[in-house]
Nucleic acid binder design. Structure first.
Lengths: 215, 215
DNA sequence: ATAATAGTGTCTGTCAGACATTATGCG
DNA sequence: CGCATAATGTCTGACAGACACTATTAT
């Protein structure tokens, strides 16, 4: 019988911050060796028979200190099998995504801009870099991902910010509006959000109808 | 310490058969319990520290009896984590793809049309069904996959057959030609293949230039 | 009014879908 | 020639990119 591999789960936890106008990545300093004290993606060893979904929750609540209820959606990304990625020995890493709409209350938790991720432990910078195009691809395509990130209601301006954070460039409002018109379960309302303190026309509100996550 | 999960690797091994004019899936009867004698995807338990690429090769050579050299390309698909998918206990299954251009010589090996896959052991029918859209998406996008399946040189007629097998409908030749014109590393030659026994105009030959797998 | 922000109309080029037409080889 | 197969020209509609212009709010 072949000795079995260790499987860890590393989570790309994302949150949209309307004030920073950007999508942020949740990272926290490691509590133990190796890389103790260095920032890392939240990750746990997958338990025997544990679902990936449950391991994702366990990593995000345990390592980032977010409440389980604040996780709005999760999903798979890719698997990393470089044998030397963990100095303790070969481990497989399954990269997953999770979304939340709340900042959490853990003092050690750091939210980093996706375009300015700090140095992370293990091969986590590589994981983030490799997965970023996969995440960009999910926006406006994977409804659970999009609704998990933006919440049930959001404005056109926020949609522009999220798109820019994930894809790297900012679409024209008219074009993004047409893209969103074609997203199933997303409807353009006639409501305007409350105006900003700086003045300017208040943006329109968009709303997910059916299978959307709560804000 | 949490008891670690078992990880198996299940391979969707594909071959294009120019005579059958279809993409075929390699399956073989299981040698041991559970499901002994039933057809299944080639799969192995992932060894500690083993690369996914190596496990794929091991599964395809060991279970299907293909020569290692005849594997033209491999890659990842998705992970299946249903705990009850194996009656022996919870195992994670990482689904991978592999391509070959040769039929192999193992008497137990069965090549099944992708649109007529027989009943398979475990949740393998579900794996095939879930991964089929992922495979269709790779055609003409993932050059390694496409070249692995079609070989270094192929005709327009074969390209039509492969596309029909994977996506479910047959494109118009003119449209597929334009799609292939935009594939990097793939060039339209002016050579015609030898005519068919049934007569008819001989099809044009297309050729992969750089990073393509040998036929 | 002016600044700041947001939304809309419309032109462009690209590209997939769909045929009809033309081309090439065999008997 | 007629049959079988393959390739090509071209029309259409969908859609992304790009801008100019209009709309709404605060000061």
């Amino acid at each position: 019988m072949i000795e079995s591999t260790l499987v860890s789960v590393d989570v790309i936890a994302l949150r949209f911050d309307p004030d920073a106008r950007a999508v942020l990545l949740g990272v926290a300093p490691r509590a133990h060796e190796p890389f103790a004290g260095e920032l890392a993606l939240p990750g746990v060893l997958l338990g025997r028979g544990e679902r990936l979904r449950d391991a994702t929750t366990r990593a995000v609540t345990g390592k980032l200190g977010l409440a389980e209820k604040s996780i709005t959606a999760t999903g798979q990304l890719a698997t990393f099998d470089e044998p030397s990625r963990d100095p303790r020995g070969p481990t497989l890493s399954i990269a997953l995504w999770a979304t939340t709409t709340r900042p959490g209350e853990n003092g050690h938790l750091t939210w980093a801009r996706l375009d300015d991720v700090p140095a992370l432990a293990f091969d986590h910078n590589r994981i983030v870099a490799d997965c970023r195009p996969l995440l960009a691809d999910k926006l406006w395509r994977d409804v659970r991902f999009t609704a998990g990130l933006l919440g049930r209601e959001f404005t056109t301006a926020q949609a522009l910010d999220v798109t820019e954070s994930l894809t790297g460039d900012r679409p024209y409002p008219a074009n993004l509006g047409r893209t969103m018109d074609r997203v199933p379960g997303l409807e353009r309302t006639t409501q305007h959000a409350s105006a900003l303190p700086k003045g300017g026309r208040p943006p329109l509100v968009w709303r997910f109808t059916a299978g959307a996550a709560p804000a």
